[in-house]
Design a protein around this nucleic acid. Structure first.
Lengths: 116, 116
DNA sequence: TGCTTATATATGCAAGTTGCAAATATAAAT
DNA sequence: ATTTATATTTGCAACTTGCATATATAAGCA
């Protein structure tokens, strides 16, 4: 999944949570295609912790298997800001590309025909 | 480089050309970060030809090494339309993500402080 | 003439990323 | 008991990427 890193940072910024819960919440952000890969989520979280972007505590309070509760650090918030800028640039670049194609009339004709 | 495939299709749709020229034109589209990889361009063109998205003829008319002139086929145009839709969705999703973060006030405060 | 630079295409490979499967563990539901 | 849901982790094959290198033609220049 593209944009997994900023998606996790975004969700953790909204609310500290654990990996399994993130898996359920990630599709809301819209970047998923064909299901969230658990391995990728947990690997990203472990990497983030190594990098100091998140901190974790084991939560054994509830029932079932122990949950590892992740919280965004100050460094994690900075990283999220960096991502925000990267994604804004990416959006603008894609937008520019779309307009470049949209300016060309036959192409748009074909597109509107295919919508009918 | 992300979006190399649609970028090449876009440029070929505007005007038939050859690989080396594409390398020079690709940065205009804005997706490059750290230079265009010649290997990636030529590999993509060869793949496109295999898939029937482009057709090629050797151009030995000019001076210097022979150029392989690529032209977009009907299938290539259809593929470009497909990419257009994929990229529009991607832009909308990124836009949604940016707004989700933008709605949160402290975050924006921090961003505006970092701009000063 | 020999050297470098620009044009032009192609191949090889190491490193990184991704996706899918499976291992491990606890507890609830059937 | 067995399956299902919760929860985290590891292994690995396949694919992608970036970088270097090989090959070839011709122009510029000393």
């Amino acid at each position: 999944m593209r944009w997994l890193a900023p998606s996790i940072l975004c969700l953790l910024w909204e609310k500290p949570t654990h990996g399994y819960n993130l898996m359920g919440a990630l599709p809301e952000l819209g970047f998923v295609d064909g299901g969230v890969d658990a391995a990728a989520v947990y690997r990203t979280l472990n990497l983030f912790e190594q990098q100091g972007l998140v901190s974790s505590v084991w939560d054994t309070s509830g029932s079932g298997a122990a949950k590892k509760l992740y919280t965004l650090t100050a460094a994690g918030k900075t990283e999220l800001q960096r991502w925000w800028q990267v994604m804004r640039e990416q959006r603008d670049t894609i937008d520019c590309f779309l307009h470049r194609l949209a300016d060309l009339p036959d192409f748009i004709d074909q597109l509107s025909q295919s919508r009918k």
